[in-house]
Design a protein around this nucleic acid. Sequence first.
DNA 1: ACCTGAACACCGTTCAAGT
DNA 2: ACCTGAACACCGTTCAAGT
Lengths: 228, 228
Amino acid sequence: MVTAEPALTPGQRLPLSRERVLRTAVAIADEHGIEAVTMRRVGDELGAEAMSLYHHVANKNDLLDGVVDLVAQEINDVVDGLDTSGPWQPVVRARILAARQVLLRHRWAPGLLATRSALSPHVVLYHDRLVGLLHGGGFSYDLVHHALHALGSRALGFSQELFDPGAGASAGPLPAELAAAVPSLVAMLSEVAHDDPGATLGWCDDQTEFEFGLDLLLDGLDRRRTGS
Amino acid sequence: MVTAEPALTPGQRLPLSRERVLRTAVAIADEHGIEAVTMRRVGDELGAEAMSLYHHVANKNDLLDGVVDLVAQEINDVVDGLDTSGPWQPVVRARILAARQVLLRHRWAPGLLATRSALSPHVVLYHDRLVGLLHGGGFSYDLVHHALHALGSRALGFSQELFDPGAGASAGPLPAELAAAVPSLVAMLSEVAHDDPGATLGWCDDQTEFEFGLDLLLDGLDRRRTGS
DNA sequence: ACCTGAACACCGTTCAAGT
DNA sequence: ACCTGAACACCGTTCAAGT
């Protein structure tokens, strides 16, 4: 692998830092999944012992908090560059879809976000701007508050899918007995050919489905705003 | 603890079974959280060695799959008793709120559900009935399909909250510097007194907020159904 | 057939010791 | 100050051995 880093005299090594530790953890998660992020593995990747990490993060929980915040910062860096002029709805829509694009690069991030108890400063910042856009668009603060709860994880651009309703009943692997037990699903899937290769089993919505659900919510919120 | 079980001659013990293993795991999760469910702990609780469990579940992943399915079965037992006559919207609404009540007894379940890759038969069954109700209520299968994606985890009665937007900026613990950085959140929260004791930090929505979001979606779906 | 003890390969983390 | 090796208390799981 070709690297642009300045040559180091042998035996010299970049010193560890919280930032390097967190970025390395993100890289491991991107490549091998979040379960591959262990203290020993992060240390290895940095050419250090696992125990050395404890000089830069308090413990693994702190490391994961930092990782989440780093991803949220990446989202903020993108969405803060977007144009915010014009009606609230397309502005908010574009912002959420842009956040989604970032999360698609870190597919493990939504699941991790859901497990964090500490507030990520950058997640809070993201929502602050969203509140500002909604309030500026004519929402009462009370309706903004409801909107945040209603959007939930969708505000950051993803929705945690339980399962793809298509996956269980699509062509091959469904046993005949189960197929007979779920006639409505079978009927639905025989009509809705669900062969879109982008449709996955996990949390990752089809872009189309995500936008459908998002527009359902944004349309409804605008109707609540104007009083039906 | 008083128990109604029949007396056993000393040395005798209830034999293990997959069902007993799964129910014990659910009981431990209810009382001590899902992270307390370890093979050794489940074994202990049954008066057996951890290794004995492997005669009844393939491995821990299989155990957790079974636990999820058991909770989904509990949901189906409840919702299958509901009245399904009348317009689709109140029927579906009541069904989802009933499912939610079950999940409130197993607050660890939504998080676990999100991590399962295997399809739980009872989760599939639940959605099959929901598909039937929507189609019977006048939805095309195509719209039903969009609806399932749009409802996502809400169909089973919960929404994974990222964080309570109120928690970060409520009265006490917010540092002054962060407060200054999130003026819109502060403004919102000074207006929306968020002192409802039921409002929690985790995935668990306020009942009111859950219903608001649910009705937003159901209203929107009905509008799509009738063609605006 | 069902259950068990010892063992293995992992975890996160503590601590005393090195430079 | 920053980093390390050995050790500890946990995991899930395998395997040969018991009844």
